[in-house]
Every structure is written in structure tokens, then in C-alpha cells.
């Protein structure tokens, strides 16, 4: 399963990077969303996937059987942060779009006299 997950994560990253490199604002934002999904799964996979019990203390479960809780804590933080970042970039994007009248990144770059 870990190998499969690794490939899946690679695929997510690939799609995300491709989207981010495009010229359209909205695609870049969606790309960052995908990128964070990929990163979360990467963290999870790094900790190992074969745990038998959720990291919540339960009667009758030996310590060894719990899933690694640390990646989960990190991911939880990351999920909420990426929500904030996505929201921020979304607003940034549409405000830029409204102000400049374009969503093409190549047209937005500053020039010598107006940067």
C-alpha cells in the first residue's frame, strides 16, 4: 500500500505543479490546493500506514498498535493553515483580477518603469 500511495502522491504533486506553472490565476490556486493534499498524504505515508488502532487511548490496545500520532498532528495543523492560505490567495487573485482586468500571469508582471 505504501508504494501505491507513494505513486499516488507523486501523481498529485505532478498535477499540482503542472497547474501552478500555468498562466491562469484560478488554475494556480487550484494547483496549490492539490499540492497541499499531496503533502498531507506524503506526511501520513511517511509515518507508516499499517497501524491497527487510531491514536486514541482505548482499553485493551497495546501501545505498539497505535498509528503514529505525530504526522496526524502535523497534518491537522497543515489542513487548517492551507485553508487560510487558499482563502487568502483566492481573495488576492480575484482582487487582482478586478483591478487589472486580466488573469494571465504573464501580463501581470511588472515592467521596468512601473515596479
Amino acid at each position: 500500500m505504501e508504494i501505491l500511495m507513494s505513486i499516488l502522491i507523486g501523481f498529485l504533486f505532478m498535477a499540482a505543479v503542472y497547474l501552478i506553472l500555468s498562466r491562469s490565476l484560478l488554475r494556480i490556486i487550484i494547483g496549490t490546493g492539490l499540492l497541499s493534499h499531496g503533502t498531507h498524504l506524503l506526511l501520513l505515508t511517511m509515518g507508516g500506514l499499517g497501524g491497527k488502532a487510531a491514536p486514541v487511548l482505548t482499553e485493551g490496545v497495546t501501545v505498539k498498535d497505535y498509528v503514529d500520532p505525530l504526522p496526524q498532528a502535523l497534518i491537522l495543523t497543515a489542513i487548517v493553515i492551507s485553508f487560510g492560505v487558499t482563502a487568502f490567495s483566492l481573495v488576492l487573485a480575484y482582487r487582482t483580477y478586478k483591478e487589472l482586468g486580466t488573469d494571465n500571469m504573464d501580463l501581470m508582471k511588472g515592467t521596468e518603469d512601473n515596479d
Binding site: V80, G84, A87
Partner: peptide, 13 residues
């Protein structure tokens, strides 16, 4: 904070 931030963002947008 989570409630405040989320709702601020959504209301704003």
C-alpha cells in the same frame, strides 16, 4: 479563532 477566521473570510467574500 477558527470560528472567527472562517466566518470573517466567508462574510468578507
Amino acid at each position: 479563532v477558527v470560528v472567527g477566521v472562517t466566518m470573517t473570510i466567508i462574510q468578507m467574500i
